[in-house]
């Protein structure tokens, strides 16, 4: 079994980051995620926690040798369950691969929390366990190492992609408020113009 851990700080509020999280795909950095579906979603009436269950459909881009061991399918499926508590401002997402889990299991947990030192930024924590099954015993270490490397690369690329999504949303928000400002400004100008004609 191999472990992976990463932390990151996003310079965006928790509200922005969690809103963007639902819109993370598609992004240019993660073309392997080809579909995202919501299997179930509800707000717990007692706790107010938003629970979401999603299915991610991904294109495998592993080398032929690895694909051969993993069954040769080019599509893989990942199930993600998440709990989002708007009171404590914590989003926890757990993902597990659905395909090939008899040969390889990847369990990942991601949390997004408010940075206690700076409320305008968000802390991201990612933990993963990679376990190659006994069917691969002779090669399990190779497979696990390969997956760990691939996971590390994907994690970095995924964060970069998410930053791009956040920037895009930020820009859209700024443009919307600029439009509001220019609308207000032109209203002010026409008010001035109006007062001038008076």
């Amino acid at each position: 079994m191999k472990f992976f851990e990463a932390t990151h700080r996003f310079n965006h509020s928790w509200a922005e980051v969690t809103a963007a999280n639902w819109m993370k795909y598609p992004n240019e950095q993660c073309p392997h995620v080809i579909a995202v579906d919501v299997l179930d979603r509800h707000v717990d009436p007692e706790t107010g926690v938003l629970r979401t269950e999603r299915l991610l459909t991904c294109n495998q881009n592993a080398p032929a040798l690895v694909l051969k061991f993993l069954g040769g399918s080019t599509l893989s499926y990942v199930r993600e369950t998440s709990e989002l508590d708007p009171k404590t401002k914590k989003l926890t997402m757990k993902t597990q691969n659905l395909s090939m889990c008899n040969v390889l299991t990847i369990n990942e947990t991601i949390t997004y929390t408010v940075n206690p030192q700076d409320e305008t930024s968000t802390m991201f924590k990612q933990e993963a366990q990679i376990l190659a099954g006994s069917a691969l015993s002779r090669f399990s270490s190779y497979i696990e190492d390969f997956c760990l490397t691939r996971f590390r690369d994907n994690a970095a690329v995924g964060r970069a992609g998410f930053e791009m999504v956040l920037e895009k949303l930020n820009k859209a928000r700024q443009e919307a408020s600029q439009q509001l400002v220019s609308a207000t400004a032109s209203a002010a100008v026409s008010a001035t113009a109006g007062s001038m004609t008076l």
Partner: peptide, 9 residues
């Protein structure tokens, strides 16, 4: 293996 609480399905 990993239930989704109160699954509406």
């Amino acid at each position: 293996d990993n239930p989704f609480p109160n699954a509406s399905s």
